[in-house]
């Protein structure tokens, strides 16, 4: 379970989070919708201690995230697979080595065992043919898949996905969403998915919330959100063809 209470974060005079509250139950997929620049990535980064909040509490499975407490931070990070917005694949390593590196650093594991498991996860996301390619040789969709495999290879209890489908064509983005969904069914991870792709949120999530003006507004199921009249929320549900 992930619980965020009264989270505050500013960069200089820019107040990004203004007392945000969020609660994600174990095994649930929760989507955070929100305009670009609303603080979605900052929220995810606070959860893994990459960004240190000015105030507020984050508790992950009853461990408080505290950047000063190296031990508890490491314990929290061990549970979390993080899919970065741009993939953040290590560009000096092949795709396979990206996974092996992540796995062998996260879990004390023999290289051969790590390599086997990495291959397995890469074939799971449909990249069996591209093991030995460098990230620069992959298309945008393939990069996202590889990054997803890298997040999953440590078999995390919690998955944080930062805009898994942004910048992809509609077909690939649906595939990625369905992939995350099916992996969730297999592994029962708790997941937070940041997106402004309502289709992705709809395919994936049990519940969603809209991040606006530093707070999470309108939390509820996608159906409940769709019924809300507020322009801010209704905007996500407008079909481009209407």
């Amino acid at each position: 379970m992930i619980e965020i209470t009264r989270l505050v974060k500013s960069f200089g005079s820019l107040n990004v989070l203004k007392g945000m509250e969020m609660r994600v139950e174990k095994g649930e997929i929760f989507s955070i919708l929100g305009k670009s620049g609303s603080g979605k990535s900052v929220t995810l980064k606070c959860i893994v201690g990459l960004v240190v909040p000015d105030a507020g509490d984050i508790v992950v499975d009853s461990v408080r995230v505290d950047a000063d407490d190296r031990k508890s931070l490491a314990a929290v990070r061990k549970k979390i697979g993080y899919l970065f917005q741009g993939g953040a694949l290590y560009d000096s390593m092949t795709i396979l080595d990206n996974l092996i590196f992540n796995l062998s650093r996260h879990r004390k594991m023999q290289r051969s065992e790590a390599a086997d498991r990495s291959r397995h996860y890469l074939s799971l996301v449909g990249l069996k043919e591209s093991l030995n390619k460098l990230p620069s040789e992959l298309s945008g969709g393939m990069k996202k898949r590889a990054a997803l495999a890298r997040a999953l290879v440590i078999e995390p209890e919690i998955l944080l996905c930062d805009e898994p489908t942004t910048g992809l064509d509609p077909i690939t983005s649906r595939e990625i969403s369905e992939l995350i969904g099916s992996l969730h069914q297999q592994f029962h991870v708790t997941a937070i998915v940041v997106t402004h792709d309502i289709l992705c949120a709809g395919i994936l999530s049990d519940r969603a919330g809209v991040l606006d003006d530093g707070m999470l507004k309108y939390t509820g199921s996608i159906k409940e959100l769709a019924a809300i009249q507020d322009e801010e929320v209704a905007g996500y549900f407008k079909s481009p063809l209407q």
């Binding site: 980064k45 893994v48 990459l50 490491a74 990070r77 061990k78 979390i80 993080y82 970065f84 917005q85 741009g86 993939g87 953040a88 694949l89 290590y90 560009d91 590196f101 992540n102 650093r105 996260h106």
Partner: peptide
Amino acid sequence: SMKVTEQIDALEVSSV
């Protein structure tokens, strides 16, 4: 370039 593409963040999350 590792910094601006979040590769350094990725290292940190992997406990490196």
